[in-house]
Design a protein around this nucleic acid. Structure first.
Lengths: 191, 191, 191, 191
DNA sequence: TATGAATGAGGCTTCATTCAT
DNA sequence: GATGAATGAAGCCTCATTCAT
């Protein structure tokens, strides 16, 4: 009640993100958001022209964060060492807002499709992958993607996640690094 | 009206599954389902007491399929060879209805939570993992889970998936096998 | 399941009456009636063309019972003794099906209006009163009506009824007789 | 749209009461209420969270009015004179909103049961009776209840009411007073 | 006599959105 | 910046009823 002047838009964003993750976009009503903020529904319309606009705003934040990663990668010299460094960076980033935004997207897949278009986020990620693995073979691409997933698993919980255990970011990072490291193993050269 | 006797319930299930994956549960209206089936909304209520009941039915099918996998694993002698065989089986199964049901769950995460309860599917999967890796260390558990994800990736497309390429089930299986195979040290040091 | 052949119509009537009293006509669905009878909804349509028809059937029974009372009164010589005898008769009759039918009407007042018409039952009762009190003054008419209510109170429970006590038919009859007995009391001659 | 600010809730209450009496709760649709008020159905939901809530609101008004009567009785010294005075008060009150609310309850008996609970109103009335007749015998209790009914009859029309005549409040009150007045023996033996 | 499957109408409710203040 | 009141569209669901078997 004191000291939060003008940050209403920010608070809306926060609450919306939380609820969109927990309950999904469609089940989250503007009334709920407003109530949690102790304002009226109509007040939200002062800050966002539309419910969808909140989603677009959140997605744009995610895209911006991915763009930062892209810029980060572009600034580094390519090479196998890059993958290792990148996973470290990714692991950091994922534990913050970036992680929650990814969760938001994962929990609202069909909604994403018809509010921001099919590939809004996916496209950007593919760009990122291309940068990391320009010219590499499909298997390497798949491995890096799994490595990212592994890192994600270290922090969040979704289906296929072990619900009985606490998140273990370091373990996840270790496995991810292994996955991404180049190999001349029997398996990948076989067949 | 022609030749389709008694299969209405089955057809509802089919269309609902398709639409729940494509548009999500909340955005899929009963009217849509009914129209695509060329019946009235009320007809749906003859076969399912509620919209949620369709979801529950679908989830139960998935659970049943997982239970089959569990039974399959329990029938085999344990050992490292089991993992290899299991991934093969999983790969087969994932290309069929099982895969679509997983997709359905992934695309409706928050809905799952409040219709069938938080862990309805996750719990079952954890049981399956426990069986595969009873007594193994956390890293092994994480790897098997990633291996399953890899197989899933070979067939479906979700966030973090490479949207420009066709699914490559064989490649995915190969990487999965590598992930799950036992290795000399925690961090692979080559073969 | 054994011995009740052909009495289905009767059983429908019974169950419907019970439910119409307890829950009201509108809230009682044909499905409920059918379920309690362990038949299907459609089966009801063999016995009654319509839900309203069940109501009409019940009302006609009540009307028939009132007509019996009318005939009974017409057969007796008029005079003050008649009132006493009639209340006795009424008290008997009210403890049986007649009472339940009255309850049914009381619990479904607006429904009666638009299924059987505003005065279907009331008209008949007025006829009965006219017979009992032909030529008597308005006060006497009101007293007889209250006497009948008193008798009703002795058996049923409605609003304005003392919910803490058991029905006391004899007490009710006693008060009713007092009410109906002619008087030259100070009150009725005053003003 | 003209001159009616903030009274919408009141107007809803009014129209609902009228229609609930005339057609019964179940047969009265929100569309009807809204149309008669020249607002949209959704507007009703701004003022009442639910159709049932309108009923509850109405019942609470009735309960409040009964409570006023209870307070009125408690403020008077007990004794036979109290009954006379009370019937006078009751007669006044019954010709206003109180009477319509009672009518509403009488015309929606089963609905009352499952919206506000079996004894919501009955309980309160019993409290009132207890106050009037603390320690008196069952017959006296029955008589006072009949006296109240008589007063009701003077204003409203229900089953067992003489539909051909106009309401006659004064006559009704006279009979009620006679009913409630103490008498020599249980069965009146003249004056 | 009875049922399984389906329909059409309509009911209650919810929700994003608007607008005058 | 914010609110109270209202709207329009649409959603889920229920129910009496029908009809071929």
């Amino acid at each position: 009640m004191a000291g939060r002047r003008g940050d209403t838009r920010e608070r809306i964003r926060e609450v919306a993100l939380k609820l969109f993750i927990r309950q999904g976009y469609e089940k989250t009503t503007l009334r709920e958001i407003a109530e949690e903020l102790e304002v009226t529904k109509a007040a939200l319309y002062y800050h966002f022209p539309t419910k969808e606009a909140i989603v677009r705003c959140l997605v744009q934040e995610l895209v911006a964060l991915i763009d930062e990663l892209i810029a980060w990668v572009e600034a580094k010299p390519p090479g196998p060492q890059l993958h290792v460094e990148f996973l470290g960076r990714f692991s950091e980033v994922v534990s913050g807002d970036f992680g929650r935004l990814i969760l938001f997207v994962q929990h609202n897949l069909p909604t994403m499709r018809d509010i921001v278009g099919a590939g809004a986020v996916g496209e950007r990620l593919t760009t990122l992958f291309d940068l990391l693995y320009r010219g590499e073979d499909p298997e390497a691409r798949l491995r890096i993607r799994l490595a990212l997933i592994a890192v994600l698993f270290g922090n969040n919980a979704t289906v296929l996640t072990d619900r009985r255990r606490e998140p273990q970011p370091e373990l996840a990072l270790r496995v991810a690094l292994d996955l991404a490291s180049p190999r001349a193993s029997a398996v990948s050269t076989g067949t």
